[in-house]
Simulated assay, not measured.
Amino acid sequence: MSDDLNGLRALVTGGASGIGLATALLLARRGARVAVLDVTPGGLPEPLLPFKADVCDDASVRAAVEAAAAELGGLDIVVNNAGIGAIGTVEDNPDEQWHRVLDVNVLGMVRTTRAALPYLRRSANAAIVNTCSIGATAGLPQRALYCASKGAVLSLTLAMAADHIHEGIRVNCVNPGTADTPWVGRLLDAADDPEGERTALNARQPMGRLVTAEEVAAAIGYLASPAAASVTGASLAVDGGMQGLRIRPPATSAPTEEPT
Rank of each mutant, 00 (worst) to 15 (best):
L236S: 08
N202F: 00
N172F: 03
V171A: 14
E214H: 09
G221W: 05
S230W: 09
T157R: 11
T232S: 15
P226V: 00
H166D: 10
H166W: 02
G233N: 13
V153P: 04
P141C: 03
R198Y: 04
P141R: 03
A124R: 13
T178Q: 06
S149D: 05
S133Q: 08
E214M: 10
V153R: 11
G233E: 13
V174I: 07
D193V: 04
A217G: 12
G168I: 02
G185I: 02
L188Q: 15
D189H: 14
S235Y: 10
I169V: 10
T212G: 07
A229R: 15
N172K: 02
D192S: 11
L156T: 12
P194S: 06
M160Y: 14
S235I: 06
V129L: 15
G151S: 07
I220W: 12
A159E: 13
M160R: 13
G221S: 10
K150P: 01
C132L: 11
K150W: 06
S230F: 12
G208A: 01
P141G: 07
T137V: 14
V153G: 05
A227T: 00
R170P: 06
A203K: 02
A152H: 09
E197K: 10
R198A: 07
D180Q: 02
A190D: 11
T232K: 06
A190Q: 14
A237H: 11
